[in-house]
Design a protein around this nucleic acid. Structure first.
Lengths: 346, 346
DNA sequence: ACATAAATTTGAAACGTTTCATTTTTGGGG
DNA sequence: CCCCAAAAATGAAACGTTTCAAATTTATGT
């Protein structure tokens, strides 16, 4: 029996207390706790006892035998992207309903630091792993390749080639970029710049692909100087924007393919005293909460973060429940939110 | 010895393997692992062995004896406030350097849901707790009062009266609000509105206090209708703003005391076709990353999130190391970032 | 060298589960 | 009412640490 003094627990109840109270054996109670068949009469007995004792399984003891922790690790490149935090929040909520907790692990990209963090995490503390890879994820990827053999892993946002990691949840970046670019073209723009992430990065390449397809489809000439690369950072967005503005015939519209870069672009336009819409058209990515406060309201591509969260949570739960072999590449669609940042120049 | 097949760990090394390799006893090795004095010769022996075996303490077994997990729980009201996520990120980084991991727990304010989450967390999974309370935190507070007797707890952002919880890290909200209001007054504004959080909420009351002090200090008449309350949400900021705009002689300047509410205010002004600066002056809270992209740049009060993070991490580490009795209320200062959103109307 | 105090080492017991080979109970058919 | 297969219950062993009283080694002063 849990014993209290002034409301503080001195001693938590154990299975042995249940045994003492019910007269059953350790084995039977344990079986009940793990969802196995137990005689009706005994089930009632045990449940009453659990209730009275306020019994909770000791996870240390359980883990010692089973090597399971009821924790899920969530590896993110940063906590300052709403994309990541929204997904973490949704998943934390769902997993909590199933008795799991979420351990956050921010990877820096510095493989030395990351290695220690990941090692500790995976060897002992988590039953499964959710991963939003860092742009610079070579080390992480190698690590995952090995780890996925011992625990279920789902990778979000980025696809990579791997014979072992096979469970991905992605958005259709190419199609989203196609539609965004299309929107600009249909408004009459033929000089459309695009600000991309790292050259060779997965999302970057996909978004570029969609952009090129759209130009091609509408017979708009492709110009290399309109495609600018940078890291997914505000400062790099600023730089990329300047680069486009410096061009002899600068684009009349820009597609910025990332949240943070968009902030940089807006700051850059501000400083160059260029008005969105009036002087230059814009469509951005993922700006959800703030697209409306910016004047004019920005047209944006919105990733289905909620759907990503729900789907991923369900999938990892399935994997944890033993269905270890349903790897899949899931691709979800983005939507486009109209704004007042695209000028018709027919 | 850890045994591998195709790079996958089959069996992790245990203390017994070290015993076998060094010829020492369990007790000695354990003592070494826990930082106690061991003969130099043996220290070397053990360290070599650990290295060779790639030994890691099994945290389940350790926890079974010690009831310690090397996890810290971080309770946040939401993951969509940069205030919270920045602090979480900083603290996660520092704690990781000390072998701790961070379990995220988002409380909803629904005490039924929260209770189950917190229970699980505290009874078994965490050695300490960091808490950014929800605005509606009665239940949470009661819970903390009891829990702090068994593990160290530090509360951030909000102060509350408690005979047990005594460790707080706060910012000087009153002073920050004083300075913000002062800035508006010095620009000649005498009709200064303030949009506050929940009536009776800690931060809300403090910020109001500073606001009133500033008005009083500069002999500006105080008007009740200029003080509007709402929840710290974008939608409520919108509503609050409308309320101020509807007033017969509406304020010439508004102090918005929260990030999310500011977004709502900006949207509201946009829709009413009111220009910040030109039509109405504004000073906001915590808008850091986006204050620069908004035109005109907003003047903002910035909370020292980095400092809060570093300080809190150090404090919880101290508490975990046994210095269990250094409760303190730490108050950090905010800074003000000038912008172009305040019009001189002398 | 010797006695003694101090510093280390030792190893059995305990932490609270799960597992599994065995034993016991149950219920259906003849 | 008995037999037997199936279902359920049993309880000892094991998981890998930490702890602690007892034993051993080392250091100190004479």
């Amino acid at each position: 029996m849990k014993r209290f003094i002034f409301g503080v627990i001195l001693l938590a109840a154990t299975i042995k207390d249940i045994v003492a109270m019910t007269g059953l054996s350790l084995g039977t109670v344990s079986k009940y706790l793990n969802g196995h068949q137990v005689k009706e009469k005994n089930r009632v007995l045990i449940e009453e006892s659990i209730e009275k004792l306020d019994f909770n399984v000791n996870l240390f003891a359980r883990g010692l035998r089973t090597k399971l922790s009821s924790n899920i690790g969530f590896i993110v490149p940063s906590l300052e992207l709403t994309f990541s935090t929204k997904i973490v929040a949704i998943i934390e909520k769902i997993l909590a309903e199933h008795g799991y907790t979420v351990i956050i692990c921010v990877v820096t990209g510095d493989s030395k630091v990351d290695k220690a963090k990941l090692q500790n995490l995976v060897y002992q503390k988590v039953d499964g792993l959710l991963v939003i890879p860092h742009a610079n994820h070579q080390f992480l990827q190698q690590w995952l390749e090995v780890m996925v053999k011992s625990i279920p892993i789902i990778v979000l946002d980025r696809l990579f080639n791997s014979s072992t990691v096979q469970h991905f949840v992605l958005v259709d970046n190419a199609n989203a970029a196609f539609k965004a670019t299309e929107l600009l073209i249909k408004a009459g723009h033929r000089d459309v710049g695009i600000i991309l992430g790292d050259r060779g990065g997965y999302t970057s390449d996909e978004r570029r692909k969609g952009y090129l397809q759209a130009l091609d489809h509408y017979h708009v000439p492709i110009k290399d100087e309109y495609q600018v690369y940078g890291k997914y950072l505000k400062a790099e967005g600023y730089k990329a924007c300047e680069q486009l503005l410096k061009l002899p015939n600068r684009p009349t519209a820009i597609f910025v393919t990332n949240y943070d870069m968009t902030l940089g672009v807006l700051e850059c336009l501000n400083e160059h005293i260029l008005q969105v819409y009036e002087d230059i058209s814009l469509i951005a990515f993922d700006l959800d909460e703030i697209s409306k406060v910016i004047k004019p309201n920005l047209a944006i591509v919105t990733q289905p973060v909620e759907e990503i969260g729900y789907y991923t949570a369900e999938e990892i739960l399935k994997s944890l429940k033993g269905n270890h072999a349903n790897p899949e590449i899931k691709i979800l669609e983005c939507s486009i939110q109209q704004g007042a940042s695209i000028k018709e120049i027919n």
